[in-house]
Design a protein around this nucleic acid. Sequence first.
DNA 1: CCGATCTCAGCAATCGATCTCATACAAGGG
DNA 2: CCCTTGTATGAGATCGATTGCTGAGATCGG
Lengths: 331, 331
Amino acid sequence: MPDLSIDVVAKAAGVHRSTVSRAFSRPEAVKSETREHILRVAEGLGYTMSPLAQALRRKTSTFIPLIVPDITNPFFAELAKTMTQAADDRGYQLLLCVTNGDPAKTDGYFTAMQAMYAPFGIVAPSTKVDTEAMKRFDFGHKVVVIDRVEGDDAVPTVTVDSRRGIKIALEHLHSLGHTSIGYVSGIAGTHTAQDRMDAYLELSAESGIAPVVLDSGSDLDAGTRGAEHYLEIDNPPTAIIAANDMVAFAVISALGQRGVRVPEDVSVIGFDGLALGARFNPPLTTVRQPIADMGHIAIELAEKQNIDGSVDHIVLEPELLVRGSTSGPRK
Amino acid sequence: MPDLSIDVVAKAAGVHRSTVSRAFSRPEAVKSETREHILRVAEGLGYTMSPLAQALRRKTSTFIPLIVPDITNPFFAELAKTMTQAADDRGYQLLLCVTNGDPAKTDGYFTAMQAMYAPFGIVAPSTKVDTEAMKRFDFGHKVVVIDRVEGDDAVPTVTVDSRRGIKIALEHLHSLGHTSIGYVSGIAGTHTAQDRMDAYLELSAESGIAPVVLDSGSDLDAGTRGAEHYLEIDNPPTAIIAANDMVAFAVISALGQRGVRVPEDVSVIGFDGLALGARFNPPLTTVRQPIADMGHIAIELAEKQNIDGSVDHIVLEPELLVRGSTSGPRK
DNA sequence: CCGATCTCAGCAATCGATCTCATACAAGGG
DNA sequence: CCCTTGTATGAGATCGATTGCTGAGATCGG
């Protein structure tokens, strides 16, 4: 196949390459008759503009990186999915970047994103470290973060109201009759994880209930340890809040292996609202984050900032999703 | 920040830009003394080469697209994870492309990959359609497929031996004492899904057992329907093979909601070996695919083809992963 | 009928690198 | 001492697009 450059099309259409360029990217600048002819010729040749050359010349592209720590984590996978959609709804191409928790890679992606002239990027951080990496780059390229960011109001963020989410979970459990409610922490390091934990502690205190933190670890084994801890307690709670759905899965699994049944013996509620939860055994009751909205909003925020320089911090409302992992306490 | 082009570095180092270029990409072509000086200067300036400009000029890049139908599916997520690693072990940058099952998007990614001068691409197809899309592009850009491909030996592939996997599952179940073993199909359309189903049917026939296909549907609800079907049968099988782990999850979940317990009432075995399975309730016994190997091999195959034009078809061995979802039949 | 205004398309420089070719200088052979 | 050979760097065209500037015609009012 002969390389399809703009010049080839220009020759075929009998015009200059600048005209072809304009036909594509500035339709009003070329007589509509000519334009249509060019477009037709291009179509016939199967021509598409080189995003590379375009980006190089324009010093701006439509590549927008989404930086996530671990695509294997369904939360990020769902985020990636909806963001892909949201991105190309607006004519962007999402580039999924997975750091696997390696800060060096985050750095790499940031410089790559500069080099690719990305107009902006989205970061879903696993740790607070990531946001520090951002500071090492003086960003003409803007970034929006899907999490809360401490001490740096200059970066737009979108989060779900952690406190509200925990409150919803607590209320649900209370209404079911639970009075002793434990907590298993999720991946540490993120602000949201911290916020959820804090909310649990505060809210418990407020309602005069002694908090029972079964595990505050940072890894996926928190669930297993939480379950073990649960068994060691003399008067174990009748319900458990897990910091996120993945932890909830792990808790239920570990509990199950030790003969504790959910929700018969103990209720478990998660936080995230993963689609996967519906197919868990039992289907997971959880606090749903509007993941799809978060994706769209993140992109809107980025665009808005690009245009008028405004920096917003959007906080979304979570909602309760009752499925099968919670019920009244065993009497 | 002043735009960091190769010329800036060249000036700063007091050499011509060609020398800088060579210092980076053809180290042996420049006096080591000069080279080190240039590298030092570049380092100090925080300079990195523009992958865009590089690709444009070289007509080849290190971007390699991985095209998957659905990143939300943990199989593809795990594949993506290991391939990211495998890719940049070899100096490539993996670009994750999600089609969401939309063939039009697949096309889009193919043309994008041409435009980006990707040296090759990896496709993990959801349907046979994808491979047809490939034919519409005459590929100077080569593709390797993670699946079997029908009637087109020209494209390298890597797969797991489906028949062997099903056989392993069957043998495991037999050894546990099961004689009536049902099957729930997975996502249809892929060759592997077809192969697994065929293998089940043939192998059952060979051992003189009547196959019981609980569902042969193509979507994620196959699990639910399979469970319903299971309940309607007079003499239901004592074990079920699910075409993949996700379906196994769904089956177990649906069964659980209907009061059927796994493995007490019925054993269930999956196919994939997802990490998630270890945290399911109960932990899923499954036939493990060496996903990480598949990723590495896919890239090797692509490179090999690029070099000597060879087209290989690698078939990997699956292995049994016994966890908690299988046990002897209830007597 | 003429100059002013407006459209529309061509020209050429440019983005940041690569690569072929040419040049400069050093070393080695006869 | 001159010519060959080789090594190390510089010059400049090029990849595929964009864009400010220029000029050719068309339109229009007086």
